[in-house]
Design a protein around this nucleic acid. Structure first.
Lengths: 218, 218
DNA sequence: CCAAAAGTGTTCCGTCTACACCCATGG
DNA sequence: CCATGGGTGTAGACGGAACACTTTTGG
């Protein structure tokens, strides 16, 4: 099969974080200007190198906590990117991770510290290296999974209205949705439950607040 | 964002190949006994280290060609695996790739040279390190994609009967299928076309041979 | 009183599922 | 002539898509 280690080369391995948030009715991505060479000043995902004492996923968690202050969040591997010249400096193999967070939980002071901004995914600028590819792959994954998994809750506060929920679906799939059909579907999926609370922010009449249903106990 | 390279560690990076084939009505995997330490003698996927002059995907292609003699084949990345102790010797980060090949195209002499065998996926032994996880993830991917993409042709000879095609579906999804419904669906999907040829191997009456439809020209 | 968002059912159509018998042929 | 696998249609269930009006209330 393979030969023993010593004959082989070693590479830098990094993680790049694709952080999605939902704000102003749009799906947004957290990106910033690179603060070092190569590529200084270019728009880029936030990333970091993998350390010896951590797994890939741990590295992604650590990097995300550094960036957002959040410990737990939805996190999925998008894939490994290893073109020879993907990093113009050294050879770096990068593993992309996709995270979903609630924009409101984001620590504003950390946002400034890292110089990152929320940018709507349909207004993304060209990003450093192969980061646009990573983002595209992450979006495709999200779209597929949205039909299978109740992802959307990660992008919303713990109490949300049905209109907000629908906006999340529309933002991810980039297509409008019939209100009645959407609500019927959500009801049948049985992921959410109505609370007695009412949100009066968005309308005069007020909208019922829902929450994500905890898994039924055994 | 991140600091410059020199402070960071480098790692061995390998590719592991999950090679599926279809034979005797079953979905099978190409595995062999490890011929080196650590883990000598354990069942294992076939893999190799990534070289400096090749991308991850190139490394997978090279490794697969070494193993099977085949140059072109269906190949998809399954994911990166990077637990700290996944390799008991050194830290090795591995990227798993899933390949689909037609068992008949397999060069028997290479099979012996590499000491690998076809093993049905529902009879898999415990594999070296995290290889079972890789296989499980690959199978899950296959199942999802089968509904979206015309994968199955990669596992069959260029001419095949509808019964064979159905067996591939059944082997991947591990559930039986109604013959009439299956054929109706295939017809409507418009991926295959009937030829004038007839296969007399499998039945006295003979079964029509089909082929994968080349994309309609523009 | 009116603008703005919330909330609510029915009908239609297409897709999926279940189901059983005749056909052609080699041995 | 019979065992073996190949080939075919229909009816009912189900789920998704289209579609419009009433309610509430803050300003």
């Amino acid at each position: 099969m393979t030969n023993f280690y010593s004959e082989h080369s070693r590479y830098f391995v990094s993680v790049d974080c694709i952080v999605f948030g939902f704000d102003e009715g749009k799906l947004k991505l957290l990106i910033g200007r690179r603060q070092m060479d190569p590529g200084r000043g270019e728009w880029s995902l936030y990333g970091g190198f993998v350390r010896e004492e951590e797994s890939l996923e741990d590295a992604a968690h650590r990097t995300l906590q550094e960036l957002t202050g959040l410990k737990k969040m939805y996190l999925k591997q998008v894939g490994a990117f290893g073109a020879i010249d993907r990093d113009p400096g050294e050879r770096v193999i990068s593993v992309a991770y996709c995270a979903l967070i609630n924009v409101k939980d984001y620590n504003r002071h950390l946002q400034e510290k890292h110089g990152v901004e929320w940018v709507a995914i349909n207004e993304l600028p060209p990003l450093y290296s192969d980061h646009n590819k990573m983002v595209q792959k992450a979006i495709n994954m999200l779209r597929k999974r949205l039909g299978t998994e109740p992802l959307s809750f990660n992008l919303l506060p713990s109490l949300f209205t049905l209109t907000q929920l629908q906006q999340v679906y529309e933002a991810i799939l980039d297509e409008p949705n019939d209100k009645r059909n959407f609500r019927k579907r959500m009801k049948s999926l049985d992921f959410i439950e109505k609370t007695e609370l009412v949100d009066k922010q968005s309308s005069k009449r007020g909208a019922a607040l829902y929450r994500f249903k905890k898994k039924a106990e055994v």
